[in-house]
């Protein structure tokens, strides 16, 4: 049994994703065994986290807050002038943006919705940043929107919803394909993925 304060720290750590009681206890014991400077540095860095990192005012990606410009931080991608401003990729979460970014296939910029339409969880269209999205499209002269919400019911519904909302703007709107992972044999692909890959096939001529 840990002393009271150590228990408090463990309880807090347990609130992190993927951390259970056992892992939290391990972290606490490790921190106590290490140089106290580590706990100090961790505490200081955490204390500053929300003040130093905020949502990008343009796209919702994470951005470093620059002193003097606290109100509207701009992320690295939005600040990068080499990016194609006419292509905008709409994603649900920052994690999805990071995944697409790692692929290196996206030359344009992003827009993070932050959530998906989900009446069951009480999320309606008014909870989506539609006005910011429209403003972004207008300001940047976006010509193509790629909707990259996940292939779940909520992701599909949000994609259909967005396509309808943006239809009047006269843009090219597409939905990311879903299919077979690269480098794997077709025989190992699960049936659902393979079925979707067939349904969403591409013409070769």
């Amino acid at each position: 049994m840990l002393p009271r304060h150590a228990r408090i720290v463990a309880r807090l750590l347990e609130r992190l994703p993927g951390v259970g009681e056992r892992t939290a206890t391990r972290y606490v014991l490790h921190l106590l065994a290490e140089d106290p400077a580590l706990s100090q540095a961790l505490g200081d860095a955490l204390r500053e986290l929300h003040a130093r990192v905020r949502g990008c005012a343009r796209c919702g990606n994470l951005a470093e807050v620059v002193p003097g410009l606290e109100a509207s931080p701009i992320c690295e991608i939005c600040a990068d002038g080499r990016r194609d401003a006419s292509v905008l990729c709409v994603v649900a979460r920052v994690q999805d943006l990071a995944a697409i970014e790692r692929s290196g296939a996206m030359r344009g910029r992003y827009f993070v919705l932050g959530r998906l339409v989900s009446p069951l969880e009480g999320v309606g269209p008014e909870d989506l940043p539609l006005e910011r999205l429209r403003a972004r499209i207008a300001e940047d002269g976006v010509k193509e929107v790629i909707i990259a919400t996940p292939p779940s019911v909520d992701g599909e519904a949000t994609s259909l919803f967005l396509a309808r909302e943006l239809a009047a703007l006269g843009l090219s709107i597409s939905r990311i394909a879903s299919g077979v992972p690269h480098g794997s044999e077709l025989e190992y692909a699960d049936q659902v993925t393979l079925g979707r890959a067939i349904a969403g096939r591409k013409s070769l001529g």
């Binding site: 339409v117 269209p125 519904a157 259909l160 919803f161 309808r164």
Partner: peptide, 8 residues
């Protein structure tokens, strides 16, 4: 909620 949500 309106048709915008119901349609999808």
């Amino acid at each position: 909620m309106d048709a915008r949500v119901l349609d999808p």
